[in-house]
């Protein structure tokens, strides 16, 4: 990386870190329960509120946001298309189908087992999507996201149908619309597995960047393209499935965050991946805080908030003139 680019990225790094830190502290202080900071250590109940509810909720938002942004970035790399993300191209819907079937067939299964089933279903659904996406003509870049929308819609419809027949429609919204209000200590920790996936993505960042150059260029540079494709699929599927199972799907994070970071800093993932993760965390945590404040003391679920905020950002990205740095 050149000196100018390195300086710019270290400055952006400081800004992102600072913003995340501010939001983190702010998130700990916002909520219906009374938690005065002055009596945090003298009042046992205030400390308990912090450790059981506020801290887990904040961490869950950070983990889910960072994970989904990375999942979106990798999905875009695998599909070689900037307009796909797990929540619109069938990954999330497949995960929902997986967890719905497990809930029907094995109601007593543990959360870990349900997550595994959701991940497996997401893997299958995403592989099918990619197999088809790679057959679409590269001269028509909008066919891929369009196909993704239809494909995700069909699986989503199947999920709704099964849930309706089994009288589980109420459960369904828990998975389809992200919400952090139910997050407590002991009920979000699976998301750390998603963080592990982010670390794996960072380790193979160079390979992912090469993959974005296409199959032939990857093989020419000695990359095992098929194996990297599998690894990418696993990362996307596990992160998306965990998010669906633990907090519900949050739309648009995986779409807008990688696009913004790419415009600002380019696509060399060794440098940009930490920013994609941090920006995803900032966006989701910010939306969750906003959702807690707008109708205080009531809450707007983060999935709904993200739907509005993310949609607006996406429109802005589309209509703004592309920048040529």
């Amino acid at each position: 990386m050149s000196i100018a680019a390195a300086k710019q990225s270290s400055k952006t790094g400081w800004i992102a870190g600072l913003m995340l830190a501010i939001l983190f502290v702010f998130s700990l202080c916002v909520g219906v329960g009374d938690m005065p900071i002055s009596r945090l250590f003298s009042d046992g109940r205030a400390l308990e509120l912090l450790l059981v509810s506020r801290l887990p909720r904040t961490l869950a938002a950070i983990l889910a946001g960072a994970g989904l942004a990375i999942a979106g970035l990798i999905m875009q790399t695998l599909a070689r298309n900037r307009y796909v993300e797990p929540s619109t191209a069938g990954t999330a819907q497949s995960a929902e189908l997986g967890i719905l079937l497990v809930t029907l067939l094995l109601p007593s299964a543990s959360l870990l087992f349900k997550s595994l089933a959701a991940s497996a279903a997401a893997l299958l659904g995403t592989s099918l999507f990619l197999m088809t996406a790679h057959r679409l003509p590269p001269t028509q870049p909008f066919l891929v996201p369009l196909f993704g929308l239809v494909y995700g819609g069909v699986i989503g419809a199947a999920v709704t149908f099964v849930a309706w027949r089994a009288d589980l429609l109420q459960y369904l919204s828990v998975w389809t619309n992200g919400d952090f209000s139910g997050v407590l200590r002991g009920r979000y920790e699976l998301l750390w597995l998603g963080a592990l996936m982010v670390v794996v993505a960072w380790i193979v960042a160079d390979r992912l960047t090469i993959m974005a150059l296409g199959r032939d260029a990857s093989i020419g540079l000695g990359l095992d393209y098929a194996r990297m494709l599998q690894l990418g699929l696993i990362i996307v599927s596990v992160i998306s499935a965990l998010s669906v199972v633990v907090v519900g799907m949050i739309p648009f994070v995986g779409l807008v965050v990688p696009n913004i970071v790419s415009r600002l800093m380019g696509d060399n993932m060794r440098g940009t991946l930490p920013f994609v993760a941090a920006s995803g965390a900032i966006l989701v945590l910010g939306c969750d805080i906003l959702g807690r404040l707008l109708r205080y003391p009531y809450e707007i679920p983060v999935g709904t908030m993200m739907g509005c905020v993310g949609g607006l950002i996406f429109l802005w990205l589309l209509f703004r003139r592309p920048s040529h740095v």
């Binding site: 050149s2 960047t209 150059l213 696509d267």
Partner: peptide, 19 residues
């Protein structure tokens, strides 16, 4: 060969050293 990634020239050439 179509490069759709936003990479700087130096970064792209640098990936030649990957093997």
């Amino acid at each position: 060969s179509i490069v759709t990634s936003r990479l700087r020239v130096r970064e792209l050439v640098g990936f030649g050293r990957f093997p």
